[in-house]
Computed example of a mutant assay.
Amino acid sequence: MSLLRYPIHVLLTGATGYIGGSTLSALLAREDYKDGRVKITCLVRGGLGDRAALIERLGVDVTVLVGDLADWELLRAAAAEADGLRRRGAPVVIDTANADFPRGARAMLAGLRQRYERTGTRSVFIHSSGTGALTDNAQGKFADQKIYDDLDCTAIRAIPTTYVHRETDELISQASVEGYVRGYVVMPPLVYGRGTGPCSRTSVQIPALIRAALTLGQAVHVGSGLSMWNGVHVNDLVSLFMVLLDDALSAAGPKAPTGLDCYYFCATDTYSWKQLAGELGKRLYAKGALPTPEPRALRPDEERVVLGEWSGFAYGSNSRSRAGKAYTLGWVPKHGTRPTNADANADGLFDSIDAEYEAVLEEGRDVAPKVHSDEMNVALGTTTYP
């Protein structure tokens, strides 16, 4: 790996979340953090047992800012002063908190623009979005053959900015075009596997499907379950963040495209919702948790109750993507149906069900699904599909 530009000052949002917490763990494990060349500031919301204290109790050299994505001035100032006014080093934002809260991204970008105008230093902005932006309204009825490819971002850019995730994505792309940041929009599909952060370590979709199965006594899918998605292990997603970070700050010059081509996929697994339900049913039946291994279709009156308001979007749509650029940069996923190195674990999406089931038992069978309308930037019932 090429030498990087130091020191590195990272502003991380979502550090107590599933993806953000795993990102924090990856940053703390870096040798350049251990020898003091990487400084980390975490934006952390208050409440829920004092999230900030959870990070502080790690006993590491991390600055904690208590606030949220709605706090414009806090975010702007944190981004603008990312290097403590030393006017040197490499300011970095890794944004994992919410892909559908553009106000937060605007505030951080405003701060980075001010910093650029003051110092002339171009910042790095890595944003965790999602392939929810690629979804249709299939409701489980069919498998779409369309597969988005990030080697050509034309089709991605054509998705309206009124659709989920797209407004924030476009803000980062435009800031990259204007030149005051190097922006990267990472679009993971379903994220699976146990996280490594200080707080939330469970994913969204598989635990929700497990809880639905336990509630109804049978694994379930939306509609006929024919629609197709992809998956990626949380650690492989975070490793792509690190690949992009290292490339962006390489003293030899970055290779990863930004600007209009700032979009990056990272899919390693492919499945239909019916396949996933069948595998979930088989594994939970073997544990004695279900009376039958066979899955069934959800009744319309059950969907919202067991999977939340966005059941059709999150569990019945098509969302297919192909990772291209990440591999050219040296990304080496260690999980999935096609791990790319001989030392990789062969376990993929289906194998994660066992650990996710144990997590569900630890957290409680009655926890509500995490996908809710207040996490989206469009109101339920007004979504228009691209």
Score class of each variant (00 low, 15 high):
residue 1 M to G: 09
residue 5 R to H: 15
residue 9 H to Q: 13
residue 18 Y to P: 06
residue 18 Y to D: 10
residue 20 G to S: 11
residue 21 G to W: 09
residue 30 R to T: 13
residue 32 D to A: 00
residue 33 Y to M: 04
residue 34 K to I: 05
residue 42 C to K: 05
residue 46 G to W: 05
residue 48 L to K: 15
residue 55 I to Q: 08
residue 55 I to R: 06
residue 58 L to S: 04
residue 59 G to T: 08
residue 63 T to G: 04
residue 72 W to F: 15
residue 76 R to W: 01
residue 88 R to D: 14
residue 91 P to N: 11
residue 106 R to E: 15
residue 109 L to H: 02
residue 112 L to F: 11
residue 112 L to Y: 04
residue 113 R to G: 04
residue 117 E to N: 05
residue 122 R to G: 01
residue 127 H to N: 11
residue 131 T to D: 08
residue 135 T to I: 14
residue 136 D to N: 15
residue 142 F to Q: 13
residue 148 Y to A: 12
residue 149 D to T: 12
residue 154 T to P: 06
residue 160 P to T: 03
residue 161 T to Y: 04
residue 162 T to C: 07
residue 166 R to A: 11
residue 167 E to V: 11
residue 168 T to P: 00
residue 169 D to F: 10
residue 170 E to R: 06
residue 171 L to T: 09
residue 172 I to V: 15
residue 172 I to T: 10
residue 173 S to E: 14
residue 175 A to T: 05
residue 175 A to N: 07
residue 177 V to W: 02
residue 183 G to Y: 03
residue 184 Y to R: 04
residue 187 M to E: 12
residue 191 V to G: 03
residue 211 R to F: 05
residue 215 T to S: 14
residue 218 Q to M: 10
residue 230 N to V: 02
residue 236 D to K: 06
residue 236 D to P: 01
residue 241 F to A: 02
residue 242 M to H: 09
residue 243 V to N: 02
residue 244 L to S: 08
residue 248 A to L: 04
residue 248 A to T: 05
residue 248 A to M: 02
residue 251 A to Q: 13
residue 251 A to R: 06
residue 251 A to W: 05
residue 257 P to H: 07
residue 262 C to K: 00
residue 267 A to Q: 10
residue 272 S to N: 13
residue 282 K to N: 07
residue 288 G to T: 10
residue 288 G to H: 11
residue 290 L to T: 08
residue 297 A to C: 09
residue 298 L to S: 10
residue 301 D to C: 09
residue 305 V to M: 03
residue 306 V to Q: 00
residue 307 L to E: 02
residue 309 E to W: 06
residue 312 G to D: 11
residue 313 F to I: 03
residue 314 A to H: 08
residue 318 N to L: 11
residue 323 A to L: 09
residue 323 A to V: 14
residue 326 A to R: 02
residue 329 L to H: 03
residue 332 V to H: 00
residue 336 G to S: 10
residue 341 N to M: 09
residue 345 N to V: 13
residue 347 D to C: 12
residue 349 L to I: 08
residue 356 E to M: 15
residue 360 V to P: 04
residue 360 V to S: 01
residue 361 L to S: 08
residue 367 V to H: 00
residue 367 V to F: 01
residue 370 K to P: 03
residue 371 V to W: 08
residue 374 D to C: 07
residue 384 T to I: 14
